[in-house]
Design a protein around this nucleic acid. Structure first.
Lengths: 344, 344
DNA sequence: ATTGCTCGGGTAACCGGTTACCTCCTGAGC
DNA sequence: GCTCAGGAGGTAACCGGTTACCCGAGCAAT
């Protein structure tokens, strides 16, 4: 099978016995055309199974570009839900949207951004926690300018602004506030020794959540204990492994856990179960994000309006919204994973 | 802000003092060019922040198209995992891939397929259970021909073949086999009254799973009882609601549940919990898919190689694989949601 | 000195649409 | 009968790249 010869607009014109302009006009639907002529064209299009070439189209006429969201992976609900919000809003705005995944590889991220520039995407939405170092700032600043030069807008989700003069829109969650609230929830249930699981120095999302955790402790006069802040990536396996290590070292010296996200919490809960500890009887735990499996684990957590974030990103990109940086509020969802500790 | 004037290859050529052909050649990297000339071009590109226009490029030169996967939503792990597999394999093959979501709307599906045709995508991968009626067959057959005419390949995942002569590749899971196996698992644990939750007449995936359920029952000489087959969509909420209705009608007349997928199982488990029934002590349950929250619920289920499906779809599309229709095997994952019933 | 390479690089045709501009035709108005 | 308006539809320029083909220079072989 050789490369099929494409049917072009000229073939259609010939078949219909009209000019290419007429075919184009019939297809566009604007412009007056006699019904008889229109019919001839429509019939020719059907007979030849003609498909206009999008590239040629995009080349000659300026048409609205697509809205692209770039995430690490779509297999993590946090990203999937945000992507969902983007898709919905984009559909509502009559735009095509597409999701691209990088697998966390900056190289792939770069080539995707490059490709989206070339495609003249209307907006590129970058989502996800990152380590904000000099290299990152440089890379993003380059993206921002490059995309701006190509006429695309860049929206950063859950990442800090890049500074004055860099053409990037920003929207994110109030991580510090949510973390503060959920920590305060544990504190007011009487817990004093609260383990923070999911330290990732330099990572924006985690840093903000830790900050909220610490500020809540401070506010309640509970001294910070660095040994209660344990490192872990934001995944189920990492939570499981970290908690295993901790519990292997001896009986827990804490009565509650604040997991940096629900996946970590799920992993930790599995580890607790394997060590014969029940939630919430033997150990209280809260998570963050309110994504599956939080509900099934009856996990008290911080609800994030993921779809709102996606929608806001699109509306920012399209200029429907102008506040940037923009912060979306969160709220606690209380389930059954926290046991009140009677005052001692 | 007006539409920014794009930097074209001619601007770069002028700036560098060379011809457009030379610029194009430097960018392409094939073709011998004197280092001095190359440098002039590279500098001009940097100075002007030039981005080649992908549409113009695609128009003049045939370049590999993107691989697109079209799913209902990315917020359901089943789809997300398959998409993940597609992305990985596509990246490995050096192709760009993108995910589009339809929200289950045939209208959006149509416009997405249309758009992908126009984009001259190399492959379009359609995933998801559907009602295979005449209308569906007609639509898909049209897609298949239209995409073939545009030089794209169509891959159907988890859907039946369209028949001879229709240019569509097919890959799916062995739903009947998996359902048979997991039902047999319940039967050999002594269960005889097994509720099938998730009947959806006409829907391919569910139909095959029911078929496996029935054949396993028949094989063990257990008479089929239509009252044990309850309708529900494949979602958590549907599972919750359906089980609520069933339990509200009176104490359960079954000892085990086979849920059509893990989401249904999760919803059912919540309902059971709300009715004071514990899993597995008071009720055994198995799911299907092995996606979150199966592990957290300690749910015995059928593991589906989602990423394999995605990878196979890509390889089929690229002609690396030729068996179509292709069926991927599954296996049971035993956890703690089934209690053996002592022989009576 | 002439021929004939090779090598670097320019010119312009082409990809497949859209649309500004022009032409032709018909019918109304005088 | 002639002018003119306006509607239908054709012609060709253009979008921004790629690349087939051509040209001139430098150098070895005849």
């Amino acid at each position: 099978m050789t490369r099929p010869t494409r049917v072009t607009i000229r073939d259609v014109a010939r078949q219909a016995g009209v000019s290419v302009a007429t075919v184009s006009r019939v297809l566009a639907g604007d412009y007056p055309v006699l019904p008889a002529t229109r019919n001839k064209v429509v019939r020719a299009v059907r007979e030849l199974d003609y498909v206009p070439n999008a590239h040629a189209r995009a080349l000659s006429a300026a048409r609205p570009g697509a809205i692209a969201i770039v995430v690490n992976t779509v297999a993590v609900p946090y990203y999937a839900y945000i992507a969902q919000g983007v898709e919905e809003q984009a559909a509502q705005e009559g735009r095509l949207s597409l999701i691209c995944t990088t697998g966390g590889d900056p190289g792939r991220e770069l080539s995707i951004v490059q490709l989206l520039r070339e495609q003249r995407a209307e907006a590129v939405i970058l989502v996800g926690s990152v380590i904000v170092d000099e290299e990152y700032r440089k890379r993003m600043t380059e993206y921002a300018h490059a995309l701006a030069a190509a006429g695309s807008r860049l929206v950063l989700c859950g990442r800090p602004p890049l500074g004055e003069g860099v053409p990037a829109l920003v929207v994110g969650f109030d991580n510090t506030g949510g973390a503060h609230a959920v920590t305060a929830h544990l504190l007011s249930a009487g817990h004093r020794r609260i383990l923070y699981l999911g330290l990732r120095p330099g990572h924006t999302t985690s840093d903000f959540r830790v900050a909220g955790y610490r500020s809540a402790l401070a506010e309640h006069g509970v001294p910070a204990d660095p040994s209660l802040e344990v490192q872990a990536e934001f995944s189920r396996d990492a939570g499981h492994a970290a908690m295993n290590r901790r519990l292997a070292a001896g009986p827990p010296d804490f009565t509650a856990i604040f997991a940096g996200n629900d996946l970590l919490a799920a992993g930790a809960i599995q580890s607790l179960r394997e060590h014969g500890l029940r939630v919430p009887q033997d150990m209280s735990i809260v998570g963050y994000d309110d994504v599956p499996p939080a509900e099934d684990l009856r996990l008290t957590t911080v609800h994030l309006p993921h779809d709102e974030l996606g929608r806001a990103a699109v509306r920012l990109a399209l200029g429907r919204l102008t506040t940037s940086p923009m912060t979306l509020g969160t709220h606690i969802v209380v389930r059954d994973s926290v046991r009140p500790l009677g005052p001692r």
